[in-house]
Design a protein around this nucleic acid. Structure first.
Lengths: 136, 136
DNA sequence: GTTAGTGCAAACTCTTTGCAGCACT
DNA sequence: AGTGCTGCAAAGAGTTTGCACTAAC
C-alpha cells in the first residue's frame, strides 16, 4: 500500500501506523488488535492502546474494515474493496478466508425493500473443519 | 412454544425460564440479554446473571439462537429453523428484521470447497434508514 | 432428599479514555 | 513551534463465575 494513504487522510506518517498497515498488507486473513500488536512489537515499540487507537482511526477513515466476530474479538483488514469473510472452526479455531463476498445481490434487494442506504455488512460462518471432524 | 421444550432438553421447568422463553416468543426481532431481563423483571423477579445463564443454557441446547452483533451485544431468538438477520441503522439503531435467510445456497458451495461441516452463520447489515437519511 | 437453578458480588475479556510527554510536519 | 500521536494506568461495557441458598423433581 502506498505510503500516501495516511497523508491523503490527513493523518501523520508515523512508524507505528506504517508498521500496522504493513502487517495487515502481509496477512491473507483479517487480524485482531492483539495479533497485529504482537506482530508489530517485534520490530517497533508500541502500546496496545495505540494499536487500538490507530486501528480505530484507520477504520473511520475507510482505510481499514473493522468487524466484530462471534468470538468477541474485532478483526481488521485492509479495505481493498475486495473484502473477505471468514469460516471458523468452532473446535480448533482454524480460519478459512472466503474470497468473494456473495452479498451484493442480497443488498440490492434489501435497498428496494427497506429504503435503507446500506453501508456495510458482517458475515461469518462457523462449523467444524475436516480435521476436527475426524478426531471427534 | 410447548412447555415441554425444557423437559425434553433435561432442564427443569422454572418460572424464570418460562418467562424468558415467553418474551422471546412474543418478539419479532432478536433481543439482548438486557432487553429480555427488563421485560421479564416486570412480572417475575430474576437477576441479570440468571438471565445470562439461562440464555446460555438454552442456546447450548439448541432452543435459542445466539448471535453477537456489531454493537457488541449478544442477541437471542427462538430457534424456529426460520431464523432472522437484522438490518441496523447506524444512526438511530432502528432494526429491521430480514425474514428469509439468503445463505443456504452459499453454504452449500462452502461445504464443497472447504470440507467443513457448517453449523451456523452470522449475518448483519448496517446502513442508514430513510428517516435518518432525510434528517442529516 | 437430591440435584439443578438462582442471587449476589466479584472477576474476566476486550476495548476505550484521560492526561502528560513525545514526534512528525 | 504547534498539533497530532503515543504510553501508561485506570475505567468501561458486556458477560461469566464461585459460592451459599432455594426450588423443582
Amino acid at each position: 500500500m502506498d505510503k500516501n494513504v495516511l497523508k491523503s487522510s490527513d493523518l501523520k506518517n508515523t512508524k507505528r501506523r506504517m508498521a500496522i498497515l504493513e502487517v495487515l498488507e502481509n496477512s491473507s486473513i483479517p487480524l485482531t488488535a492483539e495479533e497485529i500488536y504482537s506482530h508489530v512489537i517485534k520490530t517497533v515499540h508500541l502500546s496496545l492502546s495505540t494499536a487500538y487507537r490507530t486501528l480505530g482511526t484507520l477504520s473511520e477513515k475507510g482505510i481499514l474494515l473493522k468487524n466484530l466476530c462471534q468470538d468477541g474479538k474485532t478483526y481488521y483488514q485492509i479495505n481493498s474493496h475486495q473484502h473477505k469473510h471468514q469460516l471458523v472452526c468452532t473446535l480448533c479455531n482454524q480460519t478459512v478466508p472466503i474470497d468473494d463476498c456473495p452479498l451484493s445481490i442480497i443488498e440490492k434487494n434489501l435497498i428496494k425493500q427497506t429504503g435503507f442506504t446500506i453501508t456495510g455488512h458482517s458475515l461469518e460462518f462457523s462449523g467444524i473443519c475436516p480435521k476436527c471432524a475426524k478426531h471427534n
